[in-house]
Structure formats: structure tokens, C-alpha cells
Design a protein around this nucleic acid. Structure first.
Lengths: 225, 225
DNA sequence: TCAAAAGTGTTAGATTTACACCCATGA
DNA sequence: TCATGGGTGTAAATCTAACACTTTTGA
């Protein structure tokens, strides 16, 4: 409260992205091998620097867009990581963000162009600098978010089966759920709408496809999973 | 992933502190009128700049120590606030932290020396820049924390009555609780220990004083309020 | 003696959990 | 015809919420 700018030092600010996807019944994130020093060759999150003319949130949105070609992703700040020597080269403070994407929306060519792979969150190798810490915190926050808001749909196609939805909850929380209890629960949520469409890709009989109705949710945003 | 430092711009980094205290049955935070430009005279949180030789967390600890004379306060990061024009003077990104203190531990002389006052969280005036937003987020996070971890003791003297503890939960969550149900709940928690001491400051009959037993909690850290 | 806060149990209702079988279909 | 995943209901146990009176003591 009695300071002024001049006598203090400035730092570089970066953003790092934990991008969650759900595929093959598993929760995954995008990581790649660093292509520059410091840390060349180490597994790492995708990130970028904050520019002088953009907010930190905007820098994260831009970085996500560069990477995925997608805008308006569901994205939340994980927090600031600011150890003095977290970057071996310079003083860089990083703000981590997590985002949820439907892996089918994500162009696989673009993924490969960036040299990224989808890695099961339970099998994340050692990552560059403090990135493992970021992933851990992002997972906890995402889990918490999923338990209190219907954000799971961001990880699924717009039409999904109840089995897919259940597997998603199981993967995120690392638990097995009872099918009947889960479906009972879903029936209580008016914003999860059954369609007349049937998906036959995963069973002979076929399963009804459901969709998330945002309008219904906004009218009565009570949620309890 | 394909950037390097040089071409990017640096920013000033500050920390801002939301310091929660519990007094007169109310949840309060410390705020003061800014003593420098920009924003001179506006109500504001207490903050400081991050130095080049300290982590962001350390900067927050140091700032809290400067202000309160206390170390090892319970402190959590609220998040980074990084709008381009959030500081009217320069590009300053701020990392907000909240801390919990027992108002009796805090030297009132020191408080006045810093020109700060305890303000009821429900009566916070308009604050400088994005500080209201920080307070709001800190409150939510603190509420969530209190619901899942026994951190309320940080806001109370080491010996406290059950009525004090109940009032604390009521103030933080903005609800009234049933006395019998609350006490039933507390009895389940072995780490809240009854002493033989009696506090007579708030009733003629006197009320038993309790204490938080950290060791017992660490042995069985289950908690549900 | 009385005002004011401390302390104490029970019951109905709601929520959560556990659990097993039939259905539809394509191969 | 049979293997596979889809779909459905009930009952016991647990948890939550509502509720009122007695005790102690200093003024």
C-alpha cells in the first residue's frame, strides 16, 4: 500500500494449458515434448506468453485457439505458479488454465502438427518444471467442478449415451458407479434430454442418445451428481 | 511451445491479501484507504509487489507478515487477476491470496498504523480496481474450504466455545444453524476436544471451552460439516 | 427471582446404497 | 442361438432436519 512501480522488478508471464479430453473411456490430457530450451525434449504442457495488449484470460483463450482451432472452450484458471527457479532460464511466472474439449471436435492433424499426444491422466510421466503440480491441481479443480456443475457435456459429443456419461463420471472421479442409481439420478435432471435417436456403435441393441439442454438448465440450475 | 523470452513483454506482479477475521459474530476483512496514486483515497485491499528473489507465495507471506507481524498464517491462493487495464497506471498482474487470522492475535496498534479497518464482508464498499472481484472469489473459496477442512479454528482463539464455533459457521455461510444438530455434529469430530475450562465472558452460567487437536485430526482427517 | 445463554434427544422424512434380471440385436 | 451391452425397481440403511424444555448463575 506504500509502494510504487519503479523500484520493483518485472517478470515474464506465461500461460500453461491442461486440456482434458475423454476418449476410450479414459480421461486424458494433451502433452508434448518441448521443442526448445530450456527443457528441450522433456514432456510438457502446451503454453505461451502473455502479451502486453491482452488479459491473462485472453492469452489463455488465444493459446487454446492456436492449439485447437476452437473458440469458447470451457476454461478455468487453475492458479499462478511462481517459484523463483521454476523456469531454469529466466524468472517466468505461469498462470495455468484447464479446458474441456470433445476430442472429436479436435482436428487430429492439428494435434500432430503441434506434436501433442493424448495421455491418460493416470499415466502422466514426469513433466517439465512444475507442470505435474499444475496437472494435479487442475484435476482436483475439474473434479470439483464436475461435481457441482454440468460441465461433463463439454467432454462429450452433443449427443451421447447414458453409458458414455457414466463412464465419464467414473473416469474423472476414479470410481465405479452403479448403473441403476446413476440413471435414477440422471432422470431427475430435466436438462438431460432423451432423444429418439439411437446409437448402435457400441451395442447391437443400440442405446438412446441424450443431449444437454442449456436453456432448461439455466431456468433451474440445480445440480447434484 | 515454440517461443522464447526475448520477444515478449514483462509485467509487474503484485499480491493482494484478503485477510479474514471473525469478530462480534461477524466475518470481516481488513481494508484501508489507498495512500498513493493511482487510486489514492479509494478503499482497497492490502498488497505489495513480488520481488525478483522470492516466489509469489513468499511474497504473499512476506506481505502478510509486514501487515500483521504474524507468520505461518493459513493462506491460500485465490488466483491471478490479469486484465490489461486493471491498474490505471501500468500493466500490473496481481495474484490474490486469502488468509485466516484470529483477530485477538493481531496487534491493534499495527492495524491502525497501516490505516486498516475490519469491515463486515456483507458491507464491503466499492473497492479499488478489481478488488471487489477478488474478495468475492476469496469468500467463495474460503466457504468451500471451511466445508471440507477444519480451518475455522484459524479464525478463533485456541480455546473457544461451541456457540462461538457455531456463530462462525453461520457467519461464513450466511445461514442459521440448529444448535442441537450442530453440537451433535461436533461430537462426532474427535479432534474437537472439550476441556474442563469454562468461559464466563458471554453468559452467567458459563460455557465449556473446546480446542482443536491437530494430532487427532491428522490421524483421521475425515471431516464433514 | 428472573433474564440470558448453555446444554441436551427423539422422530419423521429424505437420501443413499445395494442388489439381479429381462431385452433387443447382429453375428 | 448366444454373447453383448441396454435398460429397469425395490427395500434397508443412513443421514438430515425439525423441534422444546431444563439448567445455571449473576444482577
Amino acid at each position: 500500500m506504500n509502494t510504487f512501480y519503479g523500484e520493483h522488478s518485472k517478470v515474464w508471464l506465461s500461460v500453461d494449458c491442461i486440456i482434458f479430453g475423454f476418449d476410450e473411456g479414459k480421461l486424458k490430457i494433451l502433452i508434448g515434448k518441448r521443442k526448445m530450451d530450456p527443457g528441450r525434449g522433456e514432456w510438457s504442457l502446451y503454453g505461451g506468453f502473455v502479451r502486453s495488449d491482452e488479459s491473462v484470460d485472453d492469452a489463455a483463450s488465444r493459446t487454446l485457439f492456436e492449439l485447437t482451432g476452437l473458440r469458447n472452450l470451457f476454461m478455468r484458471q487453475v492458479g499462478a505458479f511462481g517459484n523463483v527457479d521454476r523456469d531454469p532460464g529466466e524468472r517466468v511466472v505461469s498462470i495455468a488454465y484447464y479446458a474441456l474439449i470433445n476430442v472429436r471436435d479436435y482436428d487430429d492433424i492439428l494435434r500432430r502438427a503441434h506434436g501433442l499426444v493424448w495421455m491418460d491422466v493416470n499415466e502422466i510421466p514426469q513433466l517439465y518444471s512444475d507442470h505435474n503440480e499444475m496437472v494435479l491441481k487442475a484435476r482436483k479443480m475439474m473434479q470439483q467442478k464436475l461435481a457441482t456443475e454440468p460441465v461433463g457435456f463439454r467432454l462429450l459429443p452433443s449427443l451421447f449415451t447414458l453409458t458414455q456419461l457414466q463412464k465419464l463420471y467414473e473416469a474423472v472421479n476414479g470410481v465405479e458407479l452403479d448403473k441403476r442409481n446413476f440413471r435414477k439420478h440422471v432422470k431427475e435432471m430435466d436438462f438431460i434430454e432423451k432423444t429418439e435417436l439411437i446409437d448402435k456403435t457400441s451395442s447391437k441393441r443400440g442405446a438412446y442418445l441424450y443431449r444437454f439442454n442449456k436453456r432448461v438448465y439455466n431456468e433451474d440450475p440445480t445440480f447434484k451428481m
